[in-house]
C-alpha cells in the first residue's frame, strides 16, 4: 500500500470532522476520494501531508510512519491542496523556478512542466493575472515538478474548462499507467471519479462509507435509464406490464434500472409502439446523494 491509515481522527475544537478513517491506497492506482463539500476530504489530505497533527490513529506512506519519516516521505509526494498556492507577484515561470530551487530540481524541468501543462506561452506573465484554469494548471505543474511517486490532488479540476478537465484526466491516467505513479485525488463529483479512478473511497461526515475498486462501486451505483414522455403514468404501467421495474416516477419522467444499451433501445421501441411519445431517454448515474443512500442500504 502506498497510503495506509489506521483509525485516523481529527477534530476542530469539539467538532469531529474525521472519524476513525482507515484508507488503503494501492500502488499504481488512481484513488478517487469522493465526498460532498465539508465531508472531511481536505482535512484528511492535510493530515496525509503532516500539515495537521492527527488526534488519533496513524498514517503510513510507502509503508513508513509519517511523523517519524516526515521529510523522507514528503520528498516523494507532490501535492495540490484546495486552490493552488501561487505567488501572484511572480510570473508562472518564476513560481516554478522558486519551487525548483527549494526542491533541488534542475531548471530544465521547469520548462518541461510548463510545456506539459501548456503554459509555455504564458510563462512570463504574472501569475496573479492568470485565469482560474491557468492557476490550476500551474498548481499541477508545481505538484509534478519533483517527479514524485505519489501525487495528492485536492479537487484539481476545479475551475477548469471541459478541455482542461479531459487533459488533466488523461495526464493522470498516463502517469499511473506509464510511469507507475500513484494518484490520490479528491472530488465531489461521482462522474469525474468514475471516469478515471481505479479505486474509490467515499467519505461523508468524516466517515468512510465505502472503499474498494471501481468495479465494486459500480455494483452499488447501478446506472439508470431516465425517460421523459408525454404521459409518465401510462408509460410506467406499460413498462410494468412488460416486466420492467420502475424505480421512480413523477410528472416529468420515470426511471428504470439500466442493464444494457440494447435494453434502452427496446424500452424506446416499446413505448413508441404503444403510442407514447418519448421526449428523451438516456443513461444516468446516481448522484452522490442517492449513492450514499444505496451504500447505506447495502451496508
Amino acid at each position: 500500500m502506498v497510503i495506509r491509515t489506521e483509525g485516523l481522527s481529527f477534530s476542530f475544537g469539539s467538532q469531529q470532522v474525521v472519524k476513525a478513517l482507515s484508507l488503503q491506497v494501492p500502488e499504481g492506482s488512481i484513488y478517487g476520494f469522493l465526498g460532498p463539500n465539508g465531508a472531511g476530504k481536505t482535512t484528511t489530505i492535510k493530515m496525509l501531508l503532516n500539515l495537521l497533527q492527527t488526534d488519533e490513529g496513524s498514517i503510513f506512506v510507502f509503508e513508513k510512519e509519517l511523523q517519524t519519516n516526515r521529510v523522507a516521505i514528503l520528498s516523494q509526494i507532490g501535492s495540490l491542496i484546495e486552490q493552488p498556492a501561487i505567488y501572484a507577484h511572480m510570473s508562472g515561470r518564476e513560481n516554478l523556478v522558486n519551487r525548483a530551487m527549494l526542491l533541488g530540481v534542475k531548471d530544465e524541468r521547469v520548462d518541461e512542466m510548463l510545456a506539459l501543462v501548456k503554459l509555455s506561452n504564458a510563462a512570463g506573465k504574472k501569475a496573479g493575472q492568470y485565469s482560474l484554469g491557468m492557476k490550476q494548471r500551474l498548481g499541477i505543474a508545481l505538484a509534478l515538478l519533483s517527479d514524485p511517486k505519489l501525487l495528492i490532488l485536492d479537487e484539481p479540476t476545479n475551475g477548469l474548462d471541459p478541455n482542461g478537465i479531459i487533459e488533466i484526466r488523461e495526464l493522470l491516467v498516463r502517469l499511473t499507467r506509464d510511469h507507475n505513479k500513484t494518484v490520490f485525488i479528491s472530488s465531489h463529483l461521482l462522474a469525474e471519479i468514475e471516469r478515471m479512478a481505479t479505486h474509490v473511497g467515499i467519505i461523508n461526515n468524516g466517515e468512510l462509507l465505502f472503499q474498494g475498486s471501481v468495479k465494486d462501486l459500480e455494483a452499488i451505483s447501478q446506472p439508470q435509464v431516465y425517460i421523459e414522455t408525454d404521459n409518465t403514468v401510462d408509460a410506467a404501467n406499460l413498462l410494468k406490464r412488460n416486466n420492467y421495474e420502475v424505480v421512480d416516477i413523477n410528472h416529468e419522467n420515470l426511471i428504470v434500472p439500466f442493464t444494457s444499451k440494447k435494453q434502452m433501445g427496446e424500452l424506446n421501441a416499446l413505448l413508441n409502439q404503444n403510442g407514447i411519445t418519448v421526449f428523451a431517454i438516456n443513461k444516468q448515474h446516481k448522484d452522490l446523494e442517492n449513492l450514499f443512500l444505496a451504500i447505506t442500504k447495502s451496508n
Binding site: 500539515l51 523522507a72 514528503l74 509526494i77 498556492a85 508545481l142
Partner: peptide
C-alpha cells in the same frame, strides 16, 4: 502558501 511551504521535504 504556508501549506505548500510546510509540505516541502
Amino acid at each position: 502558501t504556508w501549506k505548500t511551504l510546510f509540505s516541502l521535504p
